[in-house]
Amino acid sequence: MNSMSDICRQDTEKVLLVEGDNDCHVVMALCAAHAVPETFGIYQCGSDIGVLKRLNALIVRPNPPQVIGVMLDADNPSLAGRWNSIRGKLRHYSYTFPTTPQVNGTVVESGLDEPKLGFWLMPNNQDSGMLEDFCAALAEPASLAFAQERVEQASRKNLTSFKAVHRSKAIIHTYSCSQLG
């Protein structure tokens, strides 16, 4: 295992579970840009299902983490569907969840021997979407519009192979390319 993947597999007292390496690196870049102190580790679980499974198992682990942060895309199929899948996965614990996620992220505590949990659903806890929509909100608007136009153009000419739900991924990667060099 190389050091790049280790840094996205931190088993720490305070841990942020994310879906994949892209999520991990976006969070690390954000933390660096905003000088967020390194008080937690990041663990990429391979997929959204992996995040939910690891979260469920960590809560009852011997010596569980104190705090578990969870960052998931609000897709598969939607914000409401994602929120329900989280609540369903953790139904046998003592946490009480609000019926919809809170706009600044949702934090729950049970008061028992269970870790504190925090949830952020990409992009903004209010809309369905994904990491790439969150990144798009940070991008320089004119360049992003240009990237968007290029993707539409390619799509019209049948030069693309991405699935419809991955349109924002395609746009943000096109944008990233235009920012290189």
Partner: peptide
């Protein structure tokens, strides 16, 4: 500490300690 079968399977799948 009691485990549901779903939680035990999750722990095994994700290589999280159960002992």
């Amino acid at each position: 500490t009691e485990y549901t079968s779903e939680t035990l399977t999750d722990a095994i799948d994700m290589d999280v300690e159960v002992r």
